[in-house]
Design a protein around this nucleic acid. Structure first.
Lengths: 346, 346
DNA sequence: TTGTATGCGTTATCAA
DNA sequence: TTGATAACGCATACAA
């Protein structure tokens, strides 16, 4: 447990002032090049490490970004986080990550912790029951940038990074219609959240455009869990006229549902064609392969982190950009392909 | 962007000394209860938040735990992280998370960042090509606790948290043997890593005990990716005598392999029985359901974080405990069940 | 039970 | 190009 080396120690050994050492270490333009290398070498030799607290205390910034997500243990979110970590790391920002577990109460507590940790900026995807952004007012008041991604609420002074969920929902539904589906059941999550409300809107629009029937019986709002996937089959069996198409807003839920459908004697895609959402790894494993909307998670994480860092460096003004829209893509696999006889299973 | 409130501001308003305010805020025993509530209320009223940097600078600790994992975007790792976050949050520790992307070079860089961030302790799962713990020497020297989990290297002064991978490998293999398999192919990852080396050892032991043939032809070291799962089928088709059992050290790889096997006309489990590892969500979705070793990820994360925090609080001495072994469990599903006719698919 | 005084390690301002 | 000095906000040893 050796003593910690400070710039004073370096200064003493080099017969310089601490101020000069500090400037040399920070590559200050007004410092002689020779002095810089001298200091750098000495620092290395003595095993110096800068004290970020002292530095942060002085500079009033932390080089830390806070991240609040609904759940850490989701395939989609882990790709997003992976992208964020990559970008943050490259710009030598640290990431403090916490999860709301889909509860606004915990989200509020997490926001407070982040505030007390004095993060330079915040990246947030909202819990399923969050109604407003009041708990981030402390951030807004202090001018700490907040970027919402995936699950967002539109608000001034706050970038949203999303895909066009309505268009994605529309694309998915149109695809089913093109495969000959006439009666399409849509299963979605909490309609408080843009991601689900927008997909539903897209679905309805597509039906409307093609003069197809929708209505309450064909719209199910669930938690999109494994169990919901299984329950769905019972619901389908209970229907007077079962659907011939299924658009489920989560791949994992869709995959369990397909498994259960097959066990109940339904044939996929012949009896019921299925489209999921997210392009979760599971969609490649299920048989038949799951048609889905590819969601660029890694990219979304990278762009969110990069936008925040750019803003912090004054390279991007939040007020000029308000929403960043990422491209999604329909990935057609076996679970929905009726027109072409041979599936494109991987 | 209002001015930041400090304990001095509170002290002035209350006509107390900053020291008293500081102590009151920290619930110091020597402070009058009335004073405490007085200070607490005033702090709340004025919108005070403590400055962690000033505090850390004084106390020489950070209330921050560093986490280095191979990949963020894995189902298993995200459950581990979820457990860690839960425990850390409850004890008001922050988590700084970074990924090595399976590269020892990046792991070294991450370790340095963590060191400079002055984390109070470190939770690490090693990259696939890490040979030793030299890059953590700076931590050892300063007495900063390091806990390795899942992918570990045994070392003095450093807790390992693992499951008994050898026993798990043994259990998986024995199960296949009990299902009548005589020729079992084992597919695993980098043998530098305990998790894979131990599983292989367990596999070999089980074969040995039952007088079954093993050998190089039946041991494949891969990266356990999706592609490896697909390639495996080609390998199997190229074998003079194909295996009748498959023990794959990763569920996702096993699942893709099953899909490919079925497409190549193999029947699972009749022709080839398959056992995976991890109890990844995918194992419930694949048809037939994947027999696997349940790996307690969430629990591992919780225990790792809790052990570290206990140590930091002086409640647990690292030297007394060296390895914490978590229970695994064989979960039997359809992919391996030959003896019982009806599968236990969910 | 409370107050005084000091230092934690940096960086920014001003001066040289 | 470098140096002296004063904060940054807090927690503690010592005094009272």
């Amino acid at each position: 447990m050796q003593k910690e080396i400070t710039i004073y120690d370096i200064a003493k050994q080099l017969e310089l002032s601490p101020a000069t050492v500090s400037r040399a270490l920070n590559d200050h333009p007004a410092i002689n090049q020779n002095t810089k290398t001298l200091v750098a070498n000495k620092a290395m030799e003595m095993g110096y490490r800068s004290n970020m607290f002292a530095s942060n205390l002085r500079r009033q910034r932390t080089k830390t970004i806070g991240v609040i997500v609904p759940r850490l243990d989701s395939a989609f979110m882990s790709t997003v986080l992976s992208g964020m970590e990559k970008v943050a790391n490259e710009s030598s920002y640290n990431l403090i990550i916490s999860q709301s577990l889909e509860s606004v109460t915990k989200e509020i507590a997490n926001a407070k912790t982040m505030f007390d940790s004095r993060v330079d900026g915040l990246l947030v995807s909202l819990a399923s029951d969050t109604d407003n952004l009041d708990h981030f007012n402390t951030f807004f008041r202090k001018g700490i940038p907040l970027i919402l991604f995936d699950r967002v609420i539109a608000q001034k002074n706050c970038i949203n990074i999303v895909i066009d969920n309505q268009k994605a929902g529309y694309d998915a539904t149109i695809h089913l219609i093109n495969q000959g589906c006439k009666r399409i059941l849509h299963v979605t999550g909490s309609l408080k959240r843009n991601v689900y409300a927008d997909r539903l809107r897209g679905y309805k629009l597509a039906l409307l455009e093609h003069g197809l029937t929708g209505g309450a019986e064909l719209e199910r709002s669930t938690n999109l869990t494994r169990q919901d996937g299984l329950d769905l089959v019972n619901y389908i069996k209970s229907m007077a006229i079962p659907p011939d198409g299924l658009f489920i807003a989560s791949d994992f839920c869709a995959a369990t549902c397909i498994t259960a459908l097959k066990q109940s004697g339904f044939s996929v895609p012949t009896d019921i064609a299925v489209v999921g959402f997210n392009d979760d790894p599971v969609s490649l494993v299920i048989d038949p392969g799951l048609t889905t909307i590819h969601y660029p998670g890694q990219e979304m994480g990278e762009i969110a982190a990069q936008s925040l860092i750019n803003h912090l460096n004054g390279l991007l003004r939040l007020s000029t950009t308000n929403t960043i829209l990422l491209n999604h893509e329909l990935v057609v696999r076996g679970s929905s392909q009726r027109v072409v006889s041979q599936s494109t299973l991987p």
